[in-house]
Simulated scan of single mutants.
Amino acid sequence: MSLLWILLPYSAFLSFAVGHLWRYRRDRFRSYFAHQDMDRAQRLGSMVFPLGFGIVVAARITDMISSGAHSRPEGAIYVAILVVEMIAGVVATTGAVLLFVPDLIASPTRPAITWVDRITLPVLVAGLLSGVMIRFDPNSSDNGYRTAESLFAWFRSLFTLHPNPEAMQHAPQIYQARGLILLLLIAMWPYTRLAGIFAGPVIRLSLRGRHQLRQPFGTPTAPDH
Score class of each variant (00 low, 15 high):
residue 100 F to N: 06
residue 119 I to Q: 03
residue 80 A to N: 11
residue 56 V to R: 01
residue 64 M to T: 14
residue 76 A to C: 03
residue 87 I to S: 03
residue 68 G to M: 12
residue 151 L to R: 00
residue 134 I to M: 09
residue 76 A to N: 09
residue 97 V to N: 07
residue 119 I to D: 00
residue 83 V to T: 10
residue 55 I to N: 00
residue 60 R to M: 14
residue 103 D to Q: 02
residue 46 S to M: 11
residue 81 I to V: 14
residue 106 A to N: 13
residue 45 G to T: 13
residue 102 P to N: 08
residue 136 F to W: 14
residue 120 T to P: 06
residue 50 P to N: 10
residue 118 R to K: 12
residue 47 M to H: 10
residue 84 V to L: 11
residue 82 L to H: 09
residue 136 F to Q: 12
residue 73 P to E: 14
residue 83 V to P: 03
residue 51 L to S: 09
residue 147 T to D: 02
residue 119 I to V: 13
residue 52 G to N: 09
residue 143 N to K: 06
residue 128 L to G: 00
residue 129 L to N: 09
residue 60 R to S: 13
residue 40 R to Q: 13
residue 102 P to K: 06
residue 131 G to H: 00
residue 137 D to V: 13
residue 142 D to G: 14
residue 115 W to D: 02
residue 60 R to P: 04
residue 110 R to H: 05
residue 103 D to G: 05
residue 107 S to R: 12
residue 147 T to K: 03
residue 98 L to I: 12
residue 112 A to F: 01
residue 103 D to N: 05
residue 52 G to R: 07
residue 81 I to F: 03
residue 81 I to M: 08
residue 120 T to S: 10
residue 87 I to E: 05
residue 67 S to P: 09
residue 107 S to V: 13
residue 108 P to E: 07
residue 95 G to I: 09
residue 50 P to M: 10
residue 50 P to K: 07
residue 52 G to I: 13
residue 104 L to H: 06
residue 106 A to P: 03
residue 63 D to I: 13
residue 111 P to L: 07
residue 143 N to H: 08
residue 49 F to Q: 12
residue 98 L to S: 09
residue 55 I to Y: 00
residue 146 R to V: 10
residue 80 A to F: 12
residue 102 P to Y: 02
residue 138 P to R: 08
residue 125 V to N: 03
residue 151 L to P: 01
residue 120 T to E: 08
residue 93 T to I: 15
residue 148 A to E: 03
residue 124 L to P: 00
residue 134 I to A: 04
residue 55 I to H: 00
residue 124 L to Y: 00
residue 149 E to Y: 01
residue 50 P to R: 07
residue 56 V to T: 15
residue 110 R to A: 10
residue 136 F to N: 14
residue 113 I to G: 05
residue 54 G to M: 11
residue 123 V to D: 07
residue 141 S to K: 04
residue 132 V to L: 11
residue 62 T to E: 10
residue 101 V to N: 00
residue 85 E to V: 11
residue 68 G to H: 08
residue 93 T to C: 10
residue 148 A to P: 04
residue 101 V to C: 02
residue 55 I to S: 00
residue 70 H to Y: 11
residue 140 S to G: 08
residue 95 G to C: 03
residue 99 L to F: 02
residue 96 A to C: 11
residue 61 I to S: 04
residue 59 A to L: 12
residue 51 L to N: 04
residue 44 L to S: 06
residue 69 A to I: 15
residue 106 A to F: 04
residue 145 Y to T: 10
residue 81 I to R: 02
residue 40 R to I: 15
residue 60 R to K: 12
residue 146 R to P: 00
residue 138 P to F: 02
residue 78 Y to Q: 14
residue 100 F to T: 10
residue 132 V to P: 02
residue 115 W to Y: 09
residue 115 W to I: 05
residue 71 S to P: 08
residue 143 N to C: 02
residue 66 S to W: 06
residue 133 M to L: 14
residue 93 T to V: 14
residue 83 V to D: 05
residue 119 I to E: 01
